[in-house]
Amino acid sequence: MDAPDSADGPNKGLARTRISVLVIAIGISVLAFLLVVAAWQNDRTITSDEGTATAEVLSAGRLRSAVSFITPDGVTHNPQLGVLYPTNLIAGQRIDVEYNKADPDLVRVSGRDASVAIIPAASVVVVTWLIAVPAQLLLRRREEADR
């Protein structure tokens, strides 16, 4: 196996690192976009066959809150994934929810929709690129200095 040329070795490594930073930043941006698209799709599914109920918040967290509600057919539902858009809920609180009648495990807090996912997703994208762009510039300067 040949040893890498001393002039090419560091530049190849820096070029690969620059490409890696770019791929990671693009990947994070795409995932954030897909998160908003998925939230919008869940909203469409709920709205297409919407039922409403009053639910009790069993546990509350920033990212997941568990709820329990009874549908008109008398069945109690406790969605495994919790309720969509769970911010500012308190355990024991009674809230109105909207759910998909065909799939009562797909439930959101009444009055909330995918628009609440836009700001967090956009924030992730902005922070990602605020880190990636200076990293790209720094790596490019190092790459040019090594030439």
Rank of each mutant, 00 (worst) to 15 (best):
I70R: 15
R62Q: 14
L63R: 08
P72A: 12
H77P: 04
R112G: 10
A55R: 01
V83D: 02
T76H: 06
P86N: 07
L58D: 11
V57K: 07
L63M: 07
L58P: 02
Q93F: 08
R108Y: 02
P72D: 10
S68N: 04
D105S: 14
A102R: 13
N78E: 15
V107C: 03
T71G: 03
R94E: 12
A55M: 08
G111R: 03
P79D: 06
R94H: 13
N100H: 09
R108K: 15
P120C: 05
L89I: 13
A102G: 06
D113M: 01
A121V: 00
Y85W: 11
R112V: 09
V109R: 04
A121R: 02
D73W: 08
A102C: 06
L89C: 09
I119A: 13
V75L: 14
A60R: 02
F69V: 03
R112Q: 14
D113C: 00
D73N: 14
E56G: 11
L81Q: 13
T87E: 14
V57Y: 09
T76Q: 15
R108W: 00
P120K: 10
T87F: 07
P86C: 07
G74V: 08
I119F: 08
I95W: 06
V83Q: 03
A60G: 03
V109L: 11
P120A: 05
I119H: 00
P86T: 12
P104A: 11
A55L: 07
L89M: 10
L84G: 01
T76A: 14
P72V: 12
G82C: 05
K101F: 06
G61V: 09
L63H: 04
V97K: 00
N78K: 12
Q80H: 07
P79N: 06
A66N: 07
V83H: 03
T54D: 14
L84T: 02
R64L: 13
R64I: 12
V107E: 03
S110V: 03
I118M: 11
S59D: 15
V75T: 15
P72T: 11
L81A: 14
V67H: 05
R108Q: 05
S65R: 08
S65D: 12
S59N: 10
G111W: 01
G111E: 09
K101T: 15
G111I: 07
E56N: 12
L89K: 05
V57W: 09
Y99M: 06
R62A: 14
I95A: 00
N78Q: 14
S68A: 15
N100A: 08
P79M: 07
P86V: 14
G111V: 10
S59W: 00
I119W: 07
L81T: 14
H77S: 02
G82A: 06
I119D: 06
D73H: 06
E98Q: 09
I95E: 05
G111S: 09
T71M: 06
G74W: 03
D105H: 11
I90V: 15
T76F: 04
D96I: 06
A117S: 13
L106E: 09
